[in-house]
Design a protein around this nucleic acid. Sequence first.
DNA 1: GCAGCAGTTCGACCGCGATCGAACACGTAT
DNA 2: ATACGTGTTCGATCGCGGTCGAACTGCTGC
Lengths: 106, 106
Amino acid sequence: MLNGVSDLLEPDADALALTSVLQALADDQRLTIVRELAAQGEAACGAIDLDVSKATRSHHFKVLRESGLTHTRVEGTHRWVSLRRDDLDSRFPGLLDALLAAQPAR
Amino acid sequence: MLNGVSDLLEPDADALALTSVLQALADDQRLTIVRELAAQGEAACGAIDLDVSKATRSHHFKVLRESGLTHTRVEGTHRWVSLRRDDLDSRFPGLLDALLAAQPAR
DNA sequence: GCAGCAGTTCGACCGCGATCGAACACGTAT
DNA sequence: ATACGTGTTCGATCGCGGTCGAACTGCTGC
């Protein structure tokens, strides 16, 4: 790696596809991750406890990143993940807020 | 059929599951249907043109209905389908508006 | 009755995605 | 150098969902 800082490939805000975003969100594990990120701001992949293997966890983070939902910052041995709130709010105003406000079914 | 009027089984507003709703929305064909219903108010299944077979079309309407996104009213040989706007707005405030306002990717 | 139209259901096909263990890559601490 | 911790990648399995044609149901019109 030439530069010390390294971010992973993520789609431009303009290019975010609604279907891909919805697809990424339509999974309980990933919805958990998104909620946790919304609450914690930025978190290491492993810091969010899911009841799946490392490989599966990594897969879910990849789906979130490639759909444009999250930003990933590489630092040492950790990957710091955060929600792309600004990009999402500008591209799909109100969507994220609506999701995070959703109450569990009664 | 005993009574003339007949509606199909649909989940209660309280019971709508976010994941199921998102899953139902995470498909281009179904997103097209939802947008069309939002624009037209109520439409017959066949009145929305999709580039799929009758069977597939029927499948998509079923997914939308069972996730709680649409209401279906049976009248003669037609099925009139409409968005459950009120239920969705009360269960997931802002979600539908955000979806319908979404612009295509640039 | 019979034909035709609207829509569903059935069975099958097929690809995609969620999942896992194992191997790997990379950074860090000893 | 060795070992460990964090996370990714690979290959495989497996179930689910989108798709179709064909058969079916139910209503309407002739």
